[in-house]
Design a protein around this nucleic acid. Structure first.
Length: 410
DNA sequence: TCTGGGGTCCTAGGACCC
DNA sequence: TCTGGGGTCCTAGGACCC
């Protein structure tokens, strides 16, 4: 059998953009092409979010400190992230891919699964389609991608990683089990250190060894995901491409703050900032929440609580008041390292919320105007006084972002 | 190791209701 | 053969993804 003249029972493509953020920066700054660049969270970010292939050649990796990276590669270029720009490029790519099939799962800002099972007669073999996908991405964005093709999601994703950048790796479904046989189980998407070490204790290091243990063992320990993992290792991942965009379960923002911060006013400023960001995102997507998670990391552990407000809100001010109460009750002056504010179980906003709608309407109006002005002129054009002195705070970056979905985080 | 910031799913255990 | 209260909500914690 050849890949060219055989209809696959199921055909799935995984498209993965190469060093996506760094590639966009190199595209927009031609003088950076072929050079080692590192993306950081704003000009002052000290941790590398991602970096170009040229930088990786020097041993630079995601998560490394900029300072350390410069020791490996003194001419490393720092590029502050521009999330809106990445979103724009990503959206264009994802839209272009819809031309192949509506059965597309946007897995992250730079990855998508395409179920092309039903396209084979119309568009050609999986290989032909995969080449067109690569071509389309390049024409749409000017950026290269790697593509993996197989009969299931996990093998397709594994395949895409084999040849980077600009790779095209095809593993026909009937060859998947053999292709995975000598791959460590932790090379599969969904198996990390936790499950990996459990498997190792049971004598399973490579995918080919998975059959040595009964699926019931994994089912008992990990439930349904356990059953899936057992099949995944044999090139038989049953999960389909998920096309529906699920409603969000939470919307949150957090920030690592200067180490050992113990000044109340500084903590309040960060909480105000996070509260405003959460409120803004709720409003933007027409959600409200009644429960909020508020967290504060002190050394190793988190102080945390759940705050429930009288009725669903999308107002940063109300969220912030919960943060103040949280600090009063749970914080006793310890040095802090990180703050977190998350709206839980956001619900679609109704027209009239309650008897207090009249009171709320004034704040709603203020928020509406503030949002409009900030969208037009920039994030901190209008802002609570407490945030004025921090108007250099970078916008957060969020690779989990999904175009057209609720997981838009900026 | 932590570092940056955004999420999801699953399980276990307790409270509470019928 | 023996066992058996079931269902729902909430929270905490673990594991995973980009």
């Amino acid at each position: 059998m050849t890949t060219a003249d055989t209809l696959w029972p199921r055909a799935i493509i995984l498209m993965d953009m190469n060093a996506f953020f760094a590639s966009v920066e190199q595209l927009d700054h031609p003088e950076w092409q072929g050079r080692p660049i590192a993306i950081t969270n704003g000009r002052r970010g000290s941790t590398i979010i991602t970096c170009s292939y040229e930088a990786r050649a020097w041993g630079i990796k995601t998560g490394m400190r900029l300072k350390e990276a410069r020791r490996y590669c003194p001419e490393l270029i720092q590029a502050p992230s521009r999330p809106q720009r990445y979103v724009k490029v990503s959206t264009a790519i994802m839209q272009a891919l819809q031309r192949f099939t509506p059965d597309i799962e946007i897995f992250s800002v730079d990855e998508a699964f395409l179920d092309i099972t039903r396209c084979q007669l119309l568009l050609g073999s999986p290989e032909v389609i995969a080449r067109q996908v690569k071509q389309t991405v390049l024409q749409t964005s000017g950026i290269l991608c790697s593509v993996g093709v197989s009969g299931d999601k996990t093998t397709a994703k594994y395949a895409a990683k084999l040849h980077k950048p600009d790779g095209l790796t095809i593993i026909p479904p009937w060859e998947a089990e053999e292709a995975l046989r000598n791959a460590p189980v932790t090379a599969l998407c969904g198996i990390n250190k936790g499950i990996g070490s459990y498997l190792q204790q049971h004598g399973v290091t490579y995918c080919g060894e998975m059959k040595n243990i009964p699926v019931s063992v994994l089912a008992r320990r990990f439930g349904n995901p356990g059953r899936r993992i057992w099949l995944m290792a044999q090139g038989k991942d049953p999960e389909g491409v998920i096309t529906e965009i699920a409603a969000p379960k939470s919307m949150g923002h957090g920030k690592v703050i200067p180490p050992d911060t113990s000044e109340r006013s500084v903590l309040l400023t960060y909480y105000r900032h996070m509260s405003e960001k959460v409120g803004y995102r709720l409003r933007k997507h027409h959600f409200r929440a009644q429960s909020f998670y508020i967290g504060l990391r002190t050394g190793q552990q988190w102080l945390k609580s759940r705050a429930r407000v009288a009725e669903p809100t999308d107002d940063g001010e109300i969220i912030y008041i919960q943060c103040i109460a949280f600090l009063n009750h749970h914080w006793h002056g310890e040095g802090c390292f990180q703050v977190q504010v998350t709206a839980l179980d956001p619900q679609p906003a109704q027209q009239q919320q309650s008897l207090f709608a009249v009171d709320n309407s004034k704040r709603e109006g203020v928020n509406r105007v503030m949002d409009a002005i900030n969208e037009r002129y920039g994030e901190y054009t209008l802002t609570p006084v407490r945030l004025l002195e921090r108007s250099d705070m970078p916008n957060v970056i969020a690779p989990a972002w999904k175009p057209n979905g609720h997981r838009q985080t900026i």
